[in-house]
């Protein structure tokens, strides 16, 4: 099986190691991983702020880049959702059909592992780890990814810590985080304030780098030391045993 990695802008620039772990994990699971180097941005920042023409331009480019990919796998629910649901609403005619095709072949990492590869357990590398999972909104509501990451973490021995605000938005929202910075920060605080106490959580994870940047940057600013780690790291650790 062949899959093309869609690394995403944040993956490329801020979560390069998590993207590398994505490659390691997929290879470990027998997937032949390609990285089409012409890939750029999915266009979501333009799409979400109403710049439809610009978003369409980016969508066209990415349709070309991933045209012959058997599967497209992203270590991000939000960017995968843009390919999955955003493009069809941006494009017309034949392009919309191509977008529909791409949508059917595009997956967030944990979704790909569980739903496409049919893998339910990666290994036991997370034995006894107490982990809080943040559900990114687009993974949750557009891709309907809820149980896949949790199941993989649990199967690796991790204990998922109940978190009242696990499914609430972290306040990132792309440009929202800077356009409405004060509200965005307050939203991050709601997440951080509802996290189980200091000893309760060993690390917070999520399928989305944007959410992790938002939560960790706010946490550091407040002097909180909770580690925030990308899901791809943890799944790779699950597969190969503890580091």
């Amino acid at each position: 099986m062949r899959a093309s990695l869609f690394v995403t802008c944040l993956g490329d620039q801020f979560f390069a190691d998590a993207a590398a772990d994505t490659v390691r994990l997929l290879r470990h699971l027998g997937v032949d991983v390609a990285f089409p180097e012409a890939q750029t941005c999915c266009g979501q920042p333009a799409f979400n702020s109403g710049h439809r023409n610009e978003a369409r331009r980016m969508a066209h480019h990415m349709l070309d880049v991933f045209d012959d990919a058997e599967y497209v796998v992203a270590p991000s629910g939000s960017c995968a959702a843009m390919l999955h649901s955003g493009y069809a609403s941006l494009l017309d005619g034949g392009d919309r059909e191509r977008a529909g095709g791409l949508a059917r072949r595009t997956f967030e990492l944990s979704q790909f592992i569980v739903d496409v590869l049919g893998v339910r357990a990666l290994g036991s590398g997370l034995e006894g780890r107490r982990i809080a999972y943040h559900h990114g909104c687009h993974a949750l509501r557009e891709l309907e990814v809820r149980e896949q990451p949790l199941a993989l973490l649990r199967a690796a021995g991790a204990e998922l810590v109940p978190w009242e605000a696990a499914e609430e938005c972290c306040g990132f929202g792309g440009l929202f985080a800077v356009k409405h910075a004060a509200v965005s920060v307050a939203m991050a605080d709601r997440k951080l304030d509802t996290l189980p106490g200091a000893s309760g959580v060993e690390c917070v994870t999520s399928a989305d780098g944007g959410c992790l940047l938002q939560l960790s940057s706010r946490a550091r600013h407040r002097g909180l030391e909770t580690p925030f780690r990308h899901l791809a790291h943890l799944l790779w650790e699950a597969a190969r045993g503890a580091t």
Binding site: D12, Q13, A16, A181, V185, A188
Partner: peptide, 15 residues
């Protein structure tokens, strides 16, 4: 209200 973001040591493309 947030610490500045720090890019990874190298971009994924380089890796």
């Amino acid at each position: 209200g947030r610490t500045p973001v720090e890019p990874s040591r190298k971009p994924f493309r380089a890796l």
